[in-house]
Amino acid sequence: MITPARLPFIAAALICAGAASAQTWPERQITITVVTAAGGSPDTVGRMIAAKLTERLGKPVVVEINAAGAGIAGTLGVVRSQPDGHNMVILTGGTPSQQALRPKQPYDLTTDLAMVTTLCAYPMVVSVSPKSPIKDFKDLIARAKANPGKLTYSMNAIGSLHHLLGEWINIEAGIDMQGIPYRGSPPAFMDVSSGRVDLMIDTGTFSFGQIAQGQLRALAQSAPGKYALAPDVPAVSDTLPGVNMMSWLGFAMAKNTPRPVIDRLNTEVRAILEMDDIKNRLAEMGNVPMPSSPDEMLGRIKTELAQWKKIIDAKGIKAE
């Protein structure tokens, strides 16, 4: 029986177990769960880092895709896994926005997971077809004001970062652009390039490539200031101060994972993100490395949760 008197012993035993496992960790294969489709940036970046971790930790680190159940099943698997440091999930900038939209998810992001580190980040990009009459971001707002409710932007599902940026711009600029949901960037791009939809709000990963090929023209990007990989593209916040967001990828484990394990992983990932080949490949995907401490990562998630809740409440966005 667990009596209050015994609690200190149990706690001591747990701490010892934790310390022991941190010394011998990793004991076996480490699995990184990716909860989005194969070939997406979490998968690609996950596999890049898994290969380097395998070399550095001496045990295989593998990526497993579990995109079943819109990613909830895979995340839940890690939440419920043994907190011994052998199961990780890749969270994305979209994870807090989904939590903000669906508070009734079977887990709480901020309390049921132990953050390890963020990996990389990229801004969202507002762009148009090269044939579009819209000249720049200020022109976009002027046209939207002149034609209330007429302009459309392509986005991902309800409550995605695409949607939240669109609505945040709507709120701050006092305009009323209509978001059109798409499943993924390619069909959205087809409709934007043919002029059916006026503008595209999409990830830097997708947009910068199309912009480099001349298939899209950038109006603005959502980094807090100049974005290192696209210094010519003005920031949204140049016109609408305070409107900025970065999407990111990050590792998390089951809560109660021993801190020494998390710290070791954090150190290794930091070192990996310093490597030139990793930096180059991230840059090709429009990403910059963004290591952080576990607390910084948790702080980022909490800040974003609060920010997204504000937009969701202001615009009455509901998952129903």
Binding site: G69, A73, P106, A157, I158, P181, Y182, E320
Partner: peptide, 13 residues
């Protein structure tokens, strides 16, 4: 995708 509503999921993740 359009409304974020869950349809016929019976609460199963």
């Amino acid at each position: 995708v359009h409304t974020g509503a869950e349809r016929l999921t019976f609460g199963l993740p």
